[in-house]
Design a protein around this nucleic acid. Sequence first.
DNA 1: ATCATATTTAATAACCCTATTAAACAAGGT
DNA 2: ACCTTGTTTAATAGGGTTATTAAATATGAT
Lengths: 215, 215
Amino acid sequence: MNMDNIITDKTANDSMESRIRDVAQELFFRQGFAATSTTQIAKEVGCTQALVHYYYRTKENLFRQIFLEQIQAALQVVGESLLSQESFDAFIEQAISLYFDALTRNPQLPFFVLEELVNNPERRRYLRENFVKKPSYVMIYMQFEARLKHEQQAGRIARIEPFDLMMTIASMTVFTFLSLPMYQDLLSRTDSQVKDYILQRKREVIRMVKKILKP
Amino acid sequence: MNMDNIITDKTANDSMESRIRDVAQELFFRQGFAATSTTQIAKEVGCTQALVHYYYRTKENLFRQIFLEQIQAALQVVGESLLSQESFDAFIEQAISLYFDALTRNPQLPFFVLEELVNNPERRRYLRENFVKKPSYVMIYMQFEARLKHEQQAGRIARIEPFDLMMTIASMTVFTFLSLPMYQDLLSRTDSQVKDYILQRKREVIRMVKKILKP
DNA sequence: ATCATATTTAATAACCCTATTAAACAAGGT
DNA sequence: ACCTTGTTTAATAGGGTTATTAAATATGAT
């Protein structure tokens, strides 16, 4: 592998290594870990299956790399939203909007993460070791908690546990995208109708959360 | 297969056929379709793998049977909750409570249904043909819609689209259980703590939905 | 006791899967 | 031109997978 390569943006790089990574990601997203084979990945890339193993040695390895990157990117969005210095209401609005936009760009992400965490204790352990323990991620939550408590003491918003607020926002955001294939298919919606639906749902979620937060 | 069998309750019946079904359900729930093999099912039942195919011919067949039963049972709960003749607020409270209780008894159900519907267009088509079209299920939704509109015209609750209200309740209920393994594992909670958490979350969801519905 | 019917097993065909190995091929440096 | 290093392929070991088949075993009815 050429480590002198100036281009480090993996998505822009079209080397075999990154093409395998990209195709693998797409297939893991669509089908999950168990239903995706290295043979299928190779076929879709247009190389031999041995090459997939040459670069990543095992399927589990390839998966983990993608998995961590995705989780990291997702947590990044959550972290950034907390940097807002505006009023709490504006911050909540901005945060929800940011989540919706991030997931609109990557609608399969919630399911991908869920699938591999729900029925895989080993991966949850891996996640706990690599992220939840990390001070930076603990800090993000504590910051959110402090800010909420502060607003409550000032009487500007209603009493609600920080964890409950977080879960409520996560629920409504994530579930919108989890149920999207059902929405589209069962109600026979076009892609453009789905886009409108997401925007409309975003507005509605913001409205509802604001109402919940009213003192 | 003995069709004269008086016992029709499948869970109480310990014939090989139903034992296979029960074990298969447990494994499909825990691991999903792709990660579960008929060999594993047979091993857990204590019979040969050929027997699994003798009764159900294909793995897909066995899966579908379980899948339909579960969806049917889930929709049953939704339907029943609408029979309530109490005030709208009481009805909402009762409905959410019912969903939470149903899922507490069967916490893997949301993920099981999701897993197989999200990345399987073929199963979504199957579901649409078998359920969404059925007049009884259309009726359930229309009943809910009519009742909500009626309350709104009377000025007793705030303006909100029936679909949005339904999605909101579904989001918060379903997501609680989807995220349960993460909650338990990442925060190192005991089973009893998890139980308390579910109850607490149920109360909170009811409280929030009521607040959203306030005029 | 016999016979039909239902249940269960052993054996196997015909795959597909992961991972490794050795050999072929490219490209750049000297 | 040659050698080194990195890339890619063909071949294959050693599994596991679904599904079918024929043969063995139970069960119940007559």
